[in-house]
Design a protein around this nucleic acid. Structure first.
Lengths: 240, 240
DNA sequence: TTTCTCTGTTAACATTTGGTTAAACCGGTT
DNA sequence: AACCGGTTTAACCAAATGTTAACAGAGAAA
């Protein structure tokens, strides 16, 4: 799970070239989404979280530059590489103005593209503060640090959590006192919803219950056929 | 504050081309230092603080790649653009491995170069704001001088660190008590993230642990599948 | 009830990742 | 050529994590 593969949005109208390029990138551990034109490209861009965009310049409906501008409005960080058949200087300049990270003339060597991608990703790896996810939770007397995968009870030694334990507890915490649907955890954590993953999840629920029973006010309830619920009772709301 | 013009180190052996390029850049508000070969380039690099390097690849005495490597040892951040007459794929790849930011084939359009320079400067401007050069750290009873690559424990003789040891410890220190993702170290220090670099990194973690065990309050913990954590326990926060 | 499905738990197992040591490698010197 | 510091690769073991099986128990429905 370390370093989930980087996601690339490839927008290229030539179906042959596009497919070949997609396959090549896929072979190199990138997860590629291929859109056939600018419109489709923008739709897909909005629907997912990409690490890099590769845009053909000349495309029907919406050219690469226009698309790039729209993408930049949504995300001013994401690296963009332009592909173009003609080596027109104006285009290159225009590309850089729109905030291109690099520029390649077709035909180009695929290895070169690969290196460029690597170089760019590396550059971005530095700053990218990443998504402002929520990583810390108070659960009764517990404190969950989801980034370090620690569950701390009072002032005791932190309990280490495995990635799955951690993700699962985090999901439950995000839905504290509410239903956390089975299916949600399965698709988000196990990325698959079937008999076995479901059983596996139950195993993890058991593990979490074991950790959580230190605080009697915290428990994970099952909602038959639906999912689970992380309940936190407040001891006595307040006493005068 | 930032009123001074950006400084560029231009290393190019062709006197005509070099001079023309220098003048052109100068006209565009850059302060250019022109060196005629790799040796001279490195000397000038050491003597001044540049914002960007433009290196010809083919040069007498010391070619652009070798020079780039030396420059990278001194400064892993500074943007480097290579110029080359021949468009050999191997060269391009080599360039990116050495940490090139961009690559231009001669003859090229000077405006394009200008845009590339702008684009790169912009990247760097937004990029490493947080990554402000910090070279000294207190780690428990240790003092790390990352510039001199010394690790000093109390008043003992300083322990010399190799470049990799040093970089790795520095990265850990920058993230003290927090997660330092594997991937970060691999891309920043090893410039590649694969099985072997990863194993290599583990070897270095082992070396660092050996150095650090002089202070029992300092340790490097692993977060399985994520990375490492440099933990510094404070002996007794306070005693009444 | 009976029966079926869903859940809880434990333990065995398989797989992946990390720790450590030693040997190989490499570019630069002696 | 032998050496040297630094780094990488190999090899082996240990620890961490995840999956599956097996079975007991609960819940729902007939």
């Amino acid at each position: 799970m370390e370093t989930e593969n980087k996601k690339i949005l490839l927008v290229e109208d030539d179906p042959n070239f596009g497919t070949v390029l997609k396959d090549y990138l896929a072979m190199n551990e990138y997860e590629v989404t291929h859109a056939k034109n600018g419109m489709e490209g923008f739709e897909k861009f909005k629907k997912d979280d990409f690490d890099l965009c590769i845009l053909d310049v000349m495309m029907p409906y919406k050219d690469g530059f226009t698309l790039a501008k729209e993408i930049r409005e949504k995300n001013e960080e994401i690296p963009i590489i332009f592909l173009t058949a003609k080596a027109m200087k104006e285009d290159v300049l225009k590309g850089y103005k729109v905030g291109a990270d690099d520029y390649l003339n077709k035909p180009f060597d695929s290895e070169v593209l690969l290196m460029k991608i690597k170089a760019i990703m590396q550059r971005k790896a530095t700053d990218s503060v990443a998504d402002s996810k929520q990583f810390e939770f108070e659960i009764g007397d517990f404190h969950l640090n989801s980034k370090l995968r620690f569950l701390t009870f009072g002032d005791e030694e932190p309990q280490k959590l495995s990635p799955k334990e951690n993700e699962l507890l985090r999901l439950l915490a995000l839905h504290e006192n509410d239903l956390m649907p089975r299916e949600l955890a399965l698709t988000k954590i196990w990325r698959d919803d079937n008999y076995f993953t479901s059983r596996s999840m139950d195993v993890y629920i058991a593990k979490l219950r074991k950790y959580l029973k230190k605080d009697e006010n915290v428990e994970i309830l099952n909602i038959h056929g639906e999912g689970f619920r992380l309940v936190v009772k407040n001891k006595e709301e307040e006493k005068a």
